[in-house]
């Protein structure tokens, strides 16, 4: 019992909570921007998988982690642009396009993985991984140093993105217009703002962020690629956006909470404790459903989310 409690505030658990939260935060921020522009992208799971593969294969074959990250991001953006073509130009139903993207993306990533690394039955191929980027001095602070300042550089970048993104969305002309597109595309169109262009840009940003999330999974965390590498993180990111009611601060908090629950249950399992860790894992999903019900009156959900825009149709 005391072990169960100790793990709650264990330094290692807290540090790994932030690590686990990183890809969730990245993907959720990207999805939030996409949704603000009115596009519900259910394809992030596939995008993360493709990017994880892109990062992994380039990092391994070109022997450069940075090139790996770059190609992962590139792959993420490409897949999101395919989504943009489907939903923004051709006006396919968004839900369906997102699911198609998942199927296609995951299939493609796994196919290429098997094509590049034929199944041998031996060990799984492994790439290098980034080292932790300890911040000088700060990392020496007891506990806090280990928890906060001994993370990967991408984790710092993800957290740093939050205020930058807040400023871009709330204090720039571009951000104002992006949010308007998600709320009333017709109004924007009549003001000379290209709805299509906005949605392409938003999706590209979403792809970039999901791409970073994918890269984080392969070339930061594990150095591995496997078909289930995303392990539902794309869906969790979607949940976090709703849980966070489309607000950046709450999305950050949600990512950390979900990351923490995962880290906590992992440590309980590692200690061989007989607790139903599955129920801890299910908690984020139940919380998201609860958030949907609770937030419904003051929801920040974009008014035109998920609805294709046709000029001239009202």
């Amino acid at each position: 019992m005391s072990d169960v409690l100790e793990a709650l505030i264990n330094v290692g658990v807290l540090a790994s909570a932030i690590r686990i939260a990183t890809p969730l935060l990245l993907a959720a921020l990207g999805e939030m921007v996409t949704e603000r522009a009115g596009v519900l992208n259910l394809g992030i799971e596939g995008t993360i998988t493709v990017s994880a593969f892109g990062s992994f294969v380039v990092a391994d074959k070109a022997d450069s982690l940075w090139l790996g990250v770059l190609s992962g991001v590139g792959a993420g953006i490409l897949l999101s642009l395919l989504m943009a073509v489907l939903v923004s130009s051709i006006k396919v139903e968004q839900v369906v396009a997102g699911l198609a993207l998942n199927l296609f993306g995951i299939g493609m990533a796994f196919y290429l993985f098997r094509a590049v690394y034929p199944q041998t039955g031996g060990e799984m191929p492994r790439s290098d991984t980034f080292d932790f980027a300890e911040i000088p001095l700060l990392a020496d602070i007891p506990a806090v140093g280990e928890i906060v300042f001994s993370q990967h550089w991408l984790t710092y970048a993800a957290i740093g993105t939050c205020p930058a993104l807040w400023f871009a969305l709330n204090r720039t002309q571009f951000g104002l217009e992006l949010r308007s597109v998600g709320n009333n595309p017709a109004a924007c169109d009549m003001r000379g703002i290209s709805v299509t262009r906005m949605q392409y840009l938003a999706l590209a940003f979403g792809g970039l962020m999901a791409g970073l999330a994918g890269a984080f999974l392969s070339v930061f965390l594990s150095g591995l690629f496997f078909v289930d590498v995303a392990a539902g993180r794309g869906w969790i990111a979607l949940a976090i956006v709703i849980f966070g009611n489309w607000r950046i601060g709450r999305i950050l908090a949600g990512s950390l909470l979900f990351g923490y629950l995962d880290a906590y249950q992992l440590s309980l399992q590692a200690r061989g404790l007989e607790v139903p860790h599955q129920l801890l894992l299910a908690l984020p999903f139940a919380l998201t459903i609860a958030a949907l019900v609770v937030n419904r009156r003051r929801s920040q959900e974009p008014l035109h989310l998920g609805v294709p825009y046709f000029r001239g149709e009202r």
Partner: peptide, 25 residues
Amino acid sequence: TGIPAALVDVIQGLSLIFVLTGAVA
């Protein structure tokens, strides 16, 4: 032939994308 079976997912995904496009078209 050694072609990974995952190709089928790609075929399915692509077909769906074209069906969707075609349905709008």
